[in-house]
Amino acid sequence: MSYFTETMGNLLHQTAFFNLTWGNFVMILVACIFLYLAIAKGFEPLLLVPIAFGMLLVNIYPDIFAAPEQMSNGVGGLFHYFYTLDEWSILPSLIFLGVGAMTDFGPLIANPISFLLGAAAQFGIFGAYFLAILMGFNDKAAAVSIIGGADGPTSIFLAGKLGQSGLMGPIAVAAYSYMALVPIIQPPIMKLFTTKKERAIKMQNLRPVSKLEKILFPIVVTVIVCLILPTTAPLVGMLMLGNLFRECGVVRQLSETASNALMYIVVILLGTSVGASTSAEAFLNATTLKIVALGLIAFMFGTAAGVLFGKLLCFITKGKINPLIGSAGVSAVPMAARVSQKVGAEEDPTNFLLMHAMGPNVAGVIGTAVAAGVFMAIFGI
């Protein structure tokens, strides 16, 4: 009888109920909210579903993220090994390869002024950098401020390169969360800084882009950017390699693999590992909450800067550019471009801004990678 009682007692105490803290319950609730937003509202489900599920698992069973030295058998948890690929910059670089293979750079090539809109939206990153210093982050300011680009892979990449692995989880979750919440965060800012007349501006159709231009573009961008900022090669190089797969027309199998099977495998690994970095102990503290708040401020500043620069170009071109496309200068591809289209269509259902907004959107991806390279150059990495 005593054996039975002891066995049942051990079994009972092995359940998660005896180990969960109030913080774990809070994070489980957050995970459920993320799952609701992804499944019911359709907010970037490919990102939020794996992130939220990783968050759910680690707050029920923390050992799934444990390092080998923390385990009695010397074998780490499943998500620890996934996360190591984040720290080694492998998964962020492969994400960029897939993004490049999925992305048509034609709108950017057809309208080079989009580069300026993409650059303007990076103001949020550098504005947040100085704000982070004032908030006491100091050497961690660059890793935190890159959240403003709404680019999860670049945020992870830079945090790893700057040796801020301890902040990688909160930074990545904040960046991916704001990418998913673009349809909620951006429209009020876009409407605040534009008039009804400006939002209704119709832009001329983009010129056709030749196949030669599309082939040369990734090669030229790689050469120029990597010569100036060699540290961006893992991100910009993979982005442009993926795009070259897409456009050259002779490696269809590689293009399809990079944009489909490989991309989705990497998203699963990266999403679940990022979500698993948000245990209650790691996430519910003052530093993390500051990071989340600062990332939101940076993202809002970047959106506003893109729209305001769009207004300037609208004035210079005498109404030929709709300022709404400036908000797409952040790196959330293609969600930010879709939001520009949606807000413009609310004023005039016949207004099609999507392809015009894709120019600044893909420019923003390059711009955020360049911003990361600038920080690495500043810190001598």
Rank of each mutant, 00 (worst) to 15 (best):
I146W: 01
G148W: 01
F25D: 00
L284W: 12
G54A: 08
L117R: 05
T15W: 05
G148C: 08
V292M: 13
F4M: 09
V225A: 15
T232K: 09
M300A: 15
L46G: 06
E87P: 00
G54M: 02
I28W: 00
I265W: 06
A276M: 10
E247A: 10
G152I: 08
V274A: 12
Q341P: 02
M55S: 02
H13Q: 13
L239C: 06
H13T: 12
A121L: 06
I146Q: 02
G98Y: 06
A143Y: 02
T278M: 15
F130S: 09
N111R: 14
L296I: 12
L116P: 02
F157L: 09
E256M: 08
K140W: 05
L97H: 02
Y178Q: 13
V362M: 14
D63N: 11
D63V: 11
T287A: 11
G295L: 07
N24Q: 10
T232R: 04
L134W: 11
F17V: 14
V75F: 13
L244Q: 03
W22P: 00
T195N: 06
A101T: 02
G100A: 11
G106M: 01
Y264L: 13
H13C: 04
N285Y: 10
N260K: 14
A175E: 07
A261P: 00
S255C: 10
L354V: 04
T278R: 01
K41W: 00
S145M: 04
V236C: 07
G364P: 10
